[in-house]
Computed example of a mutant assay.
Amino acid sequence: MIKKITLFLLLAAVAAAAGYVYVTKQVEQYVTQPVQVKQEYIFTLKSGTSFSRVLAELTEQGLINSSEVSQLVRRFHPELTQLKAGTYLLEPGLNLSQVLELFKSGKEHQFSITFVEGSTFKEWREALIQASHLEHKITGLSEADIAKQLGLEYEKLEGLLLAETYHYTLGTSDLDILKRASSKLQQILDQQWEQRQDKLPLKTPYEALILASIIEKETAVEEERERVASVFVNRLNKRMRLQTDPTVIYGMGDKYDGNIRKKDLRTPTPYNTYVISGLPPTPIAMPGEASITAALNPEDSTYLYFVASGKGGHVFSKSLAEHNRAVRAYLKQLRSNK
């Protein structure tokens, strides 16, 4: 009788052990199953969501296969259950265990939006509308209203925001992005204004932004910025009109069709520097840090003119006669390229 009981207990122990091994194997197969994403996939884990519910949502979204042992993951892998709310990027090649480790880490996916140097606020608004997972708070607000929300004294935002790439997480608003861009621009402007050259024809930091925006639109060649700045500074000091096409284009607004005609150069607008003296009333674009630096620290030169070389840069001249020759050479270059 004792032998039968012993045998029974032995068999029960073997069965239990076998059952445990089987369940353990099933759980391991469950947590190591590949997450079914063929391209980057955004998954949002909402605050207060239970561990069981997270597994259910992954299943409902077709990312993992369901299993009867899903409820046992908490027991066999308690280290995977302390998940943090957030928005995460799931990439091809991950398994469920790795995804849960990602949720546990709290390392949310950083979205990004890039504003190009020389862009306008109109282009910024369009980019913000298209940005993914960004809360929209400025929709319906005028530019002046947005400026007020940012604590700025100007009604136009042109030139007052730093063009660069901004990273953000879910819940960030378009207004948050603009506040960061405004703060970064102000920090750079304050620093550069303190380090500016003496005797510049610029009375305020805002005028420096106006000049920097013109430089930004005139050249994308890094080593030319200080020289372009010197041309405009020299002309301002001599009370010569700036005569720069980007200001004309900006003043034309929606009327600009890609070409500037002679009548456009003669048509008065607050921004037409062929007609007005001095700087236009506001910046014409968002300048980058390099253009701000150039505006406040121009090259020491006597250049008064420049024209495109036809080879990506510009030809600088000290007299009108030199400039006219450079213009003729540029036109000849254009004709030879046709």
Rank of each mutant, 00 (worst) to 15 (best):
T6W: 08
L7T: 05
F8T: 10
A12S: 15
A16S: 12
G19L: 10
G19Q: 12
Y22C: 04
T24C: 11
K25R: 13
E28G: 07
T32H: 14
V37A: 06
G48F: 11
F51E: 14
L55G: 05
A56T: 15
E57G: 08
Q61P: 12
Q61W: 09
Q61D: 13
G62L: 08
L63Q: 07
N65H: 12
S66R: 13
V69E: 06
S70Y: 12
L72P: 05
R74E: 15
P78S: 07
L80F: 04
L83T: 06
L83C: 07
K84P: 05
T87C: 06
L89P: 11
N95S: 06
S97Y: 10
Q98M: 09
V99P: 08
L100K: 07
G106Y: 07
Q110N: 11
F115N: 02
V116H: 11
S119F: 02
K122C: 00
K122E: 03
W124D: 00
E126F: 08
H133R: 15
K137V: 04
G140V: 13
G140A: 12
S142D: 06
E143H: 00
D145S: 09
Q149C: 02
L150P: 04
E153A: 01
E153K: 00
L157E: 02
G159I: 00
L160K: 00
L161W: 01
L162V: 01
E164H: 12
H167Y: 11
L170P: 03
S173C: 04
D174I: 02
L175Q: 06
L175A: 03
I177W: 01
K179L: 06
R180I: 04
R180M: 10
R180S: 08
L185V: 01
Q186Y: 14
I188Y: 14
L189K: 00
D190C: 06
W193S: 04
R196F: 07
P201N: 08
P205T: 01
Y206S: 00
A208F: 08
L209F: 02
I210E: 01
L211T: 00
A212D: 03
I214S: 02
T219V: 13
E223R: 14
E223C: 08
S230Q: 13
K238G: 05
R239M: 06
R239F: 06
R239E: 13
M240N: 05
L242N: 05
D245Q: 02
V248Q: 02
I249S: 02
D254N: 11
N259H: 12
R261Y: 14
K263S: 09
K263R: 10
L265G: 03
T267C: 05
T269H: 04
V275P: 07
G278L: 09
P280K: 01
P280L: 02
T282N: 01
A285V: 02
M286Q: 01
P287R: 00
S291T: 08
I292Q: 01
A295L: 07
P298T: 05
T302M: 10
Y303H: 13
L304S: 04
Y305Q: 06
V307F: 10
A308M: 13
G313L: 12
H314N: 14
S319G: 10
L320R: 11
H323M: 10
A326H: 09
L334G: 00
S336D: 14
N337R: 15
K338E: 15
